[in-house]
């Protein structure tokens, strides 16, 4: 692929080819800039003097660097709790989804299961239809899962996409492994926990990362199900802040009497500083995790593509 094999060949690079490459470099540099700069812009604004960032003066590099915004962010009413809710739904939701996907992925390779194909199709079919959000909301209400933390967790446990990923992976594990264990008297659960889990760890990591990102980013389920502010995750709280910019200033621990002093003005929270600081807090885990786990994401989408 590409030009990596060209070194040994005697073919000269034509002028046209050269132009193609230069244009590619320029276009992709712009693309990378457009994807990276918005994040960079927000980060430098959160660590710059707040009076400058409120006026929009911070464009390319930070000025008057300080980190007070991050310290005071957690003093904002409700933010710490929102952080806990986000963390809890991510951890519990991911753990259960990973277990369910691995277990079902393995179980649906067990040909002896009663009506195996039917049940498998019953689950996979849910990828292709959708009752709609309002019917979903109405039945969630009848099941008392509105204003209930488990409303975040239970609907996400079985995901057809993750099931397809793990089942495909389990199918690539040699059948002999299971047969040998069964010869030694191992039951189906022993086979799953002792034999299968250790070999399917890579795909479990993929499912974990997909699930964690979607739990961390989830917004719509809160919008539909929750009116209890104690159950709001970070995403939702940030959305509210974005829409109630005027009430922000009072939420922030600002002190109007000191803001007249230039030194205080630089660190007094403003609507801009609060908004941007929360944005960084919400994005940061993803920014940190994503480059490390990128290969798992790519693997996931590839298996999904082959099967889906």
């Amino acid at each position: 692929m590409g030009h990596s094999n060209e070194k040994g060949s005697t073919i000269k690079v034509s002028a046209g080819d050269r132009t193609v490459e230069i244009v590619c470099y320029i276009v992709f540099s712009i693309a990378a800039f457009l994807c990276l700069y918005p994040f960079y812009y927000i980060v430098i604004n959160t660590i710059s003097a707040n009076d400058l960032s409120a006026k929009g003066d911070i464009l390319f590099w930070p000025q008057g660097i300080h980190f007070k915004n991050y310290l005071s962010a957690f003093r904002i009413d409700g933010l710490l709790r929102a952080f806990q809710i986000s963390l809890m739904r991510t951890v519990i939701g991911t753990a259960l989804t990973v277990f369910a996907s691995a277990f079902l992925g393995f179980m649906f390779t067990q040909e002896k299961m009663w009506l195996r194909k039917f049940w498998y199709r019953l689950i996979v079919a849910t990828m292709y239809f959708n009752a709609g959000i309002i019917p979903w909301f109405l039945v969630m209400k009848t099941m008392h899962l509105t204003n209930n933390f488990w409303g975040y967790i239970l609907p996400a446990i079985v995901s057809p996409f993750n099931l397809i990923l793990t089942k495909t992976f389990v199918e690539s594990v040699p059948k002999e492994l299971q047969e040998a264990a069964e010869m030694d008297g191992a039951g189906v659960l022993t086979v799953f926990f002792r034999i299968i889990i250790p070999v399917i760890k890579p795909i479990m990591a993929t499912v974990a990362i997909f699930s964690a990102v979607s739990q961390w980013n989830a917004f719509q389920d809160t919008l539909l199900l929750m009116t209890d502010t104690k159950l709001y995750p970070l995403q939702f709280v940030l959305y509210q802040y974005l829409n109630q910019a005027s009430s922000l200033a009072s939420l922030a621990q600002s002190n109007t009497s000191t803001s007249s002093l230039a030194a205080a003005a630089a660190t007094t929270q403003t609507t801009t500083s609060v908004r941007m600081t929360i944005t960084v807090i919400v994005v940061l885990p993803i920014m940190l995790v994503y480059p490390i786990f990128q290969k798992y994401f790519v693997k996931g989408i590839m298996i999904g593509a082959v099967k889906g």
Binding site: C35, I286, Q294
Partner: peptide, 12 residues
């Protein structure tokens, strides 16, 4: 860098 935006939510 270009796949990163896919992993932030719409609120972000």
């Amino acid at each position: 860098v270009t796949t990163l935006p896919n992993f932030v939510s719409w609120v972000m």
